[in-house]
């Protein structure tokens, strides 16, 4: 009986196996098409555009003008450095804020787990712009936050370390980094949560049984197991933060311009498409390089 069953499935499996050989590719097709149309083609267009010369009235001609990359870097390197520093700081802050929260949701929240997760995602129900504008109100001079920060001498401290330039919080490096951290925090929390949620509490128990201190348990069990979440979270925070142009515009001042604003203004105001394309490409190259080094150092390169 068992043999017959095996035989019958075997004979049925033969044609289906042949079909299986093309089914996976067919399933990949929409995704691949999507990538070609919305990723590869724009990349090629962008690369070609960056090497063109001309203006909007007369059109752009491909001249292979590589010098534009040198010009772009020479003129705008401070904005690149600034973007990377701000995005990096925001990523570290988001990790410090997000890790305990993600751990709590995953391991301790019990029946409130879903509720808290919804709360983490809730800000996405309103527009990014509105949320950033809300920070202008929160950090404005006539609101209690600034008042208290002044009383507690936090503003003096921020001014001393150069994060603000006077006794208000708005329109400063501090405000821009806060805005970035806030806006991209959910991108940090969610991947951390998925990693930590899978963490088997018995491993932590076992560590305790083996006389590991809380710190040792964290360092040798929890942290390594959450590493995929950490890597994904930091990437999902850092990459969009580095290219962001809203926070710097709404919360910053003229000394905090990030590269995203420069690209935005070159594309939409100056209409210098080649320079804008070159600036975007440089940002892309910097980020891809940094990400690959980072992933290699994090020891998860075969998984990304």
């Amino acid at each position: 009986m068992a043999e017959a069953a095996v035989l019958s499935t075997g004979s049925a499996a033969a044609p289906s196996r042949r079909r299986r050989s093309w089914v996976p590719y067919a399933l990949l097709l929409p995704g691949l098409l999507w990538l070609v149309v919305f990723f590869v083609l724009p990349m090629v267009t962008l690369a070609s555009q960056s090497l063109q010369e001309g203006n909007v009235d007369d059109g752009y001609v491909f001249t292979g003008n590589v010098g534009i990359y040198v010009d772009a870097l020479q003129q705008y390197w401070p904005q690149y450095v600034r973007s990377l520093v701000y995005a990096g700081t925001a990523t570290v802050l988001a990790l410090l804020l997000g890790y305990p929260l993600a751990y709590f949701i995953a391991q301790k929240a019990g029946r409130y787990k879903n509720l808290i997760l919804v709360l983490v995602i809730a800000p996405f129900f309103t527009s990014f712009l509105i949320r950033t504008l809300a920070w202008r109100t929160i950090l404005s001079d006539d609101w209690f936050v600034t008042e208290w920060a002044q009383k507690l001498h936090i503003t003096d401290f921020l001014q001393a370390v150069g994060l603000t330039s006077n006794d208000s919080l708005l329109s400063s490096k501090f405000a821009v980094i806060m805005g970035l951290t806030y806006n991209f925090l959910p991108f940090m929390i969610l991947p951390l949560y998925t990693s930590l949620e899978r963490l088997d509490p018995r491993l932590i128990e076992a560590a305790g049984d083996l006389y590991a201190s809380a710190w040792q348990t964290f360092r040798r069990v929890t942290w390594p197991l959450s590493l995929p979440g950490v890597v994904a979270g930091t990437l999902l925070t850092f990459i969009p933060a580095a290219g962001d142009f809203i926070n710097a515009r709404l919360l910053g001042n003229t000394q905090t311009t990030m590269i995203g604003s420069v690209i935005d203004s070159q594309f939409l105001r100056v209409l210098d498409y080649p320079l804008a394309a070159a600036l975007s490409f440089i940002l892309l190259i910097i980020i891809v390089t940094m990400v690959s080094v980072y992933v290699r150092r994090a020891g998860t390169e075969e998984l990304l």
Binding site: L46, G54, N55, G59, Y60
Partner: peptide, 12 residues
């Protein structure tokens, strides 16, 4: 990338 494409265009 799609946003970039929208901004591209080369004929004058």
């Amino acid at each position: 990338a799609a946003a970039f494409l929208a901004a591209c265009g080369s004929a004058g």
